[in-house]
C-alpha cells in the first residue's frame, strides 16, 4: 500500500508485508459490493413480501410497467459495460485514445440510461403512494438509479484523470476498481429489470 510506495522514507512506517496476492483496493471494492448486494437483497425482500406473500396483483390494476422501452434502455446500459471494458483493455495496451474515448462513451451511455429512466418516471402515470406495488416499483428502480448516479460520479472522476494524463499500461487500478463498481451496477440492473418488468 502507501507504505510500500515510500519504503525508503526514514520517517515513514516500515513497508507492510503483503500477506496475500490480492490487490487490497480490489478486495475492498468487492467487499463493499457484497454490502451493496445485501442492500438490494433487502429491497427485494420487500418486493417478495408485497408481491408473493400479500399476493397483490403485479402490477397493480390499471398500471403497466413499460417492458419494451426499458428493455432497450437495458441494452444501452449493458453497452456501457462493453465500452468500459474497451477502455480498460486500451489502457493496458497503452492506447490513451482508446482509454479516453472508452471512458467518455461509457459515461454518456450511463447518462442516457439515467435520463431515459427519469423520463419513464415522468410518464408512468402513477406515483409511489398510489399502491404498495408502485411503492416497491419506485424504490427498487430508484435504489438502482441512485447507484447509477454514484457510478457516474466515479466514472467522471476517472475520465477527468484520464484526460489529465493519469493511468499507464502498468498503473491503472485507479480506473479498474471504479470499473468493477460500474459493472456491478449494470449486472444489478439486469436482475432488477427481470424481476420488476419481465416476470
Amino acid at each position: 500500500m502507501e507504505a510500500a510506495s515510500i519504503a525508503h522514507d526514514h520517517h515513514g512506517p516500515p513497508p507492510a508485508h503483503r500477506s496475500s496476492r490480492v490487490h487490497a483496493p480490489t478486495l475492498g471494492m468487492l467487499l463493499f459490493i457484497m454490502s451493496e448486494v445485501m442492500i438490494f437483497g433487502a429491497f427485494f425482500t420487500a418486493y417478495f413480501f408485497i408481491r408473493v406473500v400479500t399476493k397483490d396483483p403485479w402490477p397493480a390494476h390499471g398500471t403497466v410497467f413499460p417492458e419494451g422501452p426499458t428493455g432497450v434502455n437495458t441494452g444501452i446500459l449493458l453497452a456501457s459495460s462493453l465500452t468500459l471494458h474497451w477502455a480498460l483493455v486500451s489502457v493496458k495496451k497503452g492506447n490513451r485514445f482508446g482509454l479516453k474515448a472508452g471512458m467518455v462513451a461509457t459515461f454518456l451511455l450511463g447518462l442516457t440510461f439515467l435520463t431515459l429512466q427519469v423520463n419513464e418516471y415522468i410518464h408512468l402515470g402513477f406515483a409511489p403512494h398510489d399502491s404498495a406495488q408502485a411503492t416497491v416499483f419506485y424504490s427498487l428502480t430508484g435504489l438502482h438509479g441512485a447507484h447509477v448516479v454514484v457510478g457516474l460520479g466515479a466514472l467522471i472522476m476517472v475520465t477527468v484523470r484520464a484526460f489529465r494524463g493519469h493511468y499507464t499500461a502498468d498503473e491503472h487500478q485507479g480506473m479498474e476498481v471504479p470499473g468493477i463498481y460500474w459493472h456491478f451496477v449494470d449486472i444489478m440492473w439486469v436482475i432488477v429489470y427481470t424481476a420488476v418488468y419481465v416476470l
Partner: peptide, 9 residues
C-alpha cells in the same frame, strides 16, 4: 383492497 403493504416484512 388488494393494494396492501406488508407489516411483518
Amino acid at each position: 383492497a388488494g393494494k396492501n403493504g406488508n407489516v411483518l416484512m
